[in-house]
């Protein structure tokens, strides 16, 4: 047969042709050129939105009093030498001094170390745990158990771990000794190990948060993508790295940023466990700030330190909010 019908020749091309032809014949034709090009002669007065502003007003007023007003106070204080008695203007002296203040710079460095160690462990453990929990049939109970540490006041958690770490009667101290990691000195007593001790407590309390966030992320991994990839020949492991992980990154990023900021926000457990010691081994910046402001009552200097901390937080916050917008827009 020489006269091959086009349909048997290449069905796809023909189908494409048909669709194109359809689109063409159903194409909606141009309407008359609009005679309406000008704007209306006059507008109606706008509708008032007052009602909504009234509802908003009390909350904004409270917030202004407890957040905006203190913020300006903070700036003013940072330019003064303030202690219990009162203040006098010193200009930028507080700031200038910070740069020659070894503990201030150390504080940032320790904070960075602390955050990176906490986050590294939490993300690693948390994601692993999420994957395991996700494939377990006891998921609901496991999640409930995992939530427990987060319900505990960080200060109480600090006290509890203080007890566990205790060099003479702490059970965790005994375990660490028994497996040969520690000699007699308590983990908290040595400048070399105290940082690890406070990291472990943070990991204990907050890894579950990463797990739960990752778990929510895992549930959102599109099943059809996984299945399509499987049918195309991917092994489960490959599937995990090719499909699951990329889908997990956005929520993990949120989790990391949240935890990162929390490391700035909360120092309850560190205060209770070491108070920054031994020496200054665990004096991460917020702890140092606490000491300057509320132990020595150098409120002016404290304010200057607080401002640097706030600025970094605000930058992190901007980042976080930008990441936030995405999964919220998807609304899946």
């Amino acid at each position: 047969m020489t006269d091959v019908s086009p349909i048997s020749a290449n069905p796809r091309a023909v189908a494409a042709q048909i669709f194109r032809a359809r689109a063409h014949s159903a194409e909606v034709e141009a309407r008359p050129q609009s005679e309406i090009t000008n704007r209306p002669r006059s507008f109606n007065p706008p509708m008032p939105k007052r009602y909504y502003y009234y509802l908003m007003a009390p909350a904004i007023a409270i917030l202004a009093f407890i957040s905006l007003y203190p913020f300006f106070w903070l700036i003013v204080m940072s330019l003064q030498d303030v202690d219990i008695g009162g203040g006098e203007w010193v200009g930028f002296k507080n700031y200038v001094k910070l740069f020659s203040d070894g503990r201030f710079l150390d504080g940032w460095w320790l904070l960075a170390q602390y955050s990176v160690m906490c986050l590294g462990l939490q993300v690693g453990l948390g994601v692993l745990l999420a994957v395991v929990v996700n494939s377990s049939k006891y998921e609901k109970y496991l999640v409930t158990a995992l939530l427990m540490p987060m319900m505990m006041a960080p200060a109480v958690a600090g006290l509890l771990w203080l007890f566990l770490y205790n060099g003479t009667f702490g059970w965790y101290h005994w375990i660490l000794q028994s497996v040969g990691i520690l000699d007699n000195a308590s983990i908290l007593a040595s400048a070399n190990t105290a940082m690890y001790a406070i990291v472990l407590v943070d990991v204990w309390q907050w890894t579950p948060l990463i797990t739960i966030i990752a778990l929510a992320g895992l549930k959102r991994v599109p099943r059809d993508q996984l299945e399509a990839n499987m049918v195309d020949g991917a092994s489960p492991l490959r599937n995990f790295f090719a499909i699951t992980m990329p889908n997990l990154y956005p929520v993990l990023l949120i989790a990391v940023l949240l935890r990162f900021m929390d490391n700035f926000r909360f120092i309850d457990s560190v205060l209770v466990l070491t108070g920054g010691g031994p020496g200054s081994a665990t004096k991460i910046l917020p702890v140092y700030l606490f000491e300057v402001a509320f132990k020595f009552f150098k409120l002016g200097r404290g304010a200057a330190i607080a401002l640097t901390l706030l600025i970094v937080t605000i930058i992190l916050g901007k980042l976080l909010v930008r990441v936030f917008e995405k999964p919220q827009n998807e609304k899946g």
């Binding site: 407890i66 903070l74 926000r265 917020p286 409120l299 607080a306 401002l307 901390l309 937080t313 605000i314």
Partner: peptide
Amino acid sequence: FRGKQDLFFWIISTRMAPVVAVMVPLYAI
């Protein structure tokens, strides 16, 4: 309304501010 995003950011950053940093001026006030 105009500035809603900024208002929102202010609100959220109030929540995320380090507790110690907030406490310095709050204590004075």
